[in-house]
Amino acid sequence: MNLRCMIVDDEPNAVNLLEMLIRQTTEWQLLAKCYDALEALAFLKEQEVDFIFLDINMPRLTGMELAGLLPASTHLVFTTAYSEYAADSYGYTTLDYLLKPVTLKRFYAAVQKIESYFAMKERGSDAPAPPPPATYFFIKSGKTFHKILLKDILYFEGEKEYVRLVTATAQLLVYRRLKEIEEQLSQPFIRVHHSYIINMAQVSKIQDNHIFIADKQIPVSDKFREPFMTAIRQRMF
């Protein structure tokens, strides 16, 4: 896939390694190698790239500070020796988070992820509009069938072989597995944890890897964080 990228990193050895990996494993165009954030800003005023390999710990202006100055739609691959910034990175349009030193195996995995993202994005632009989603369904709880409006659901919580469906006014216990429920749902519902499916429309805020819905605080697990943050980025200004 012919993608355009650039590297922003103040460490020459890290830049050289990324350049080598790009040339050995991809058909991407490396348009620029910038050794500080201000140089990168000047370049981006003149040219567009599909995504940026961005270091975090840089002098004068850090990678996170640079990310905050770029348009929200700018695609980023953070490259850093510090794992503690991972959660903060997903506040931006982050495609991946690479820990230094970047290995060939890890870089190749990133290539697959990045190219899959852009391929899906390209297909999506030509895809026909999906049919309108259902607005309600029926839930059997005990001997009763309850009609539930999808917009009223706050979240689903798995409890072994049961699922608890929670709205603002009621809770229903259903003899189903969470995976079965997930297969019947589409956006704005998204799996965020082994035990939770949430209604994105009901989220009030996200903080420190937790989602807040009404008075409930729901954790986001590592396994589901990336698709969740992708959904968030689609709604960011």
Rank of each mutant, 00 (worst) to 15 (best):
A168C: 00
F189K: 01
A127W: 13
L173R: 00
K140H: 09
F138P: 05
L185P: 02
A170Y: 10
R164G: 08
L150V: 13
R177G: 02
A168L: 03
L185R: 02
R176P: 03
R191P: 04
V192K: 04
Y136D: 15
Q171A: 12
Y162Q: 07
V166D: 04
D126I: 13
Q184C: 14
K140N: 09
A129Q: 08
K151N: 14
L173F: 05
D152P: 01
E161T: 12
L154M: 03
L154K: 01
E180F: 06
K147P: 03
R191I: 00
I139S: 03
A134H: 13
L173V: 07
Y162N: 06
E161F: 09
Y155F: 07
H146A: 07
V174M: 08
H193C: 08
K179E: 10
V192D: 02
R177D: 00
L173H: 01
F145D: 13
E122D: 05
K160G: 00
E183H: 13
T167A: 03
E159F: 08
F145Y: 14
E183F: 14
E161R: 10
I153V: 14
T167P: 05
I139K: 01
V166C: 04
H146T: 10
E161M: 10
Y136A: 13
R177W: 02
Y155H: 02
